[in-house]
């Protein structure tokens, strides 16, 4: 069926099967490969995107369901070519990533979290991160990055 999805402010028209997951639509249909696919059953958080501004698993929704909603992916964070937003910069400065596989999902989770809680304490940051798995670095530097942004 033919659908029009609004992703990062741009409309994309595609012919898709109803069973196509939103995560696969983003990656394979429109080439936004920043959204990573880890577990495909909602546990790892790598595919987290913003659905009308709220963090959600792209692997647990069908692309056809996203019609009429605003989808934002990690590609929308950068303010311009070669530039990072404040959270991304804090990740770099705090060494908050190693392999980077989990990073897009974590950035989207935290973007929504910081919009709602601009000055969180450490416990709230850890709670917010509980739905995203990182298997390289642990979470300490990620927490540091968030607190750095919150203090700025």
């Amino acid at each position: 069926m033919k659908i029009t999805l609004r992703v990062n402010g741009t409309d994309h028209v595609r012919e898709v099967e109803p069973r196509l997951l939103l995560s696969d639509f983003l990656r394979h249909e429109i080439g936004l490969t920043g959204t990573h696919v880890g577990c495909e059953h909602g546990v790892c958080g790598a595919c987290t995107i913003l659905w009308d501004g709220e963090p959600a698993r792209a692997c647990l929704a069908f692309a056809v369901q996203a019609e009429g909603h605003e989808i934002r992916t990690v590609e929308s964070l950068s303010p311009g070519p070669g530039r990072l937003d404040a959270l991304q910069q804090a990740f770099q400065d705090s060494h908050a990533l190693q392999c980077g596989y989990c990073t897009p999902g974590i950035l989207m989770t935290l973007t929504a979290f910081l919009a709602e809680n601009p000055h969180p304490d450490e416990a709230a940051v850890r709670e917010a991160l509980s739905g995203n798995l990182c298997r390289c670095t642990g979470y300490q530097h990620i927490v540091d990055a968030v607190l750095r942004v919150a203090a700025a």
Binding site: T48, W51, P55, A56, R57, L60, A61, F113, G131
Partner: peptide, 9 residues
């Protein structure tokens, strides 16, 4: 109940 991303939907 699960995580914020799950509770969104």
């Amino acid at each position: 109940v699960a995580h914020p991303q799950i509770r969104t939907r």
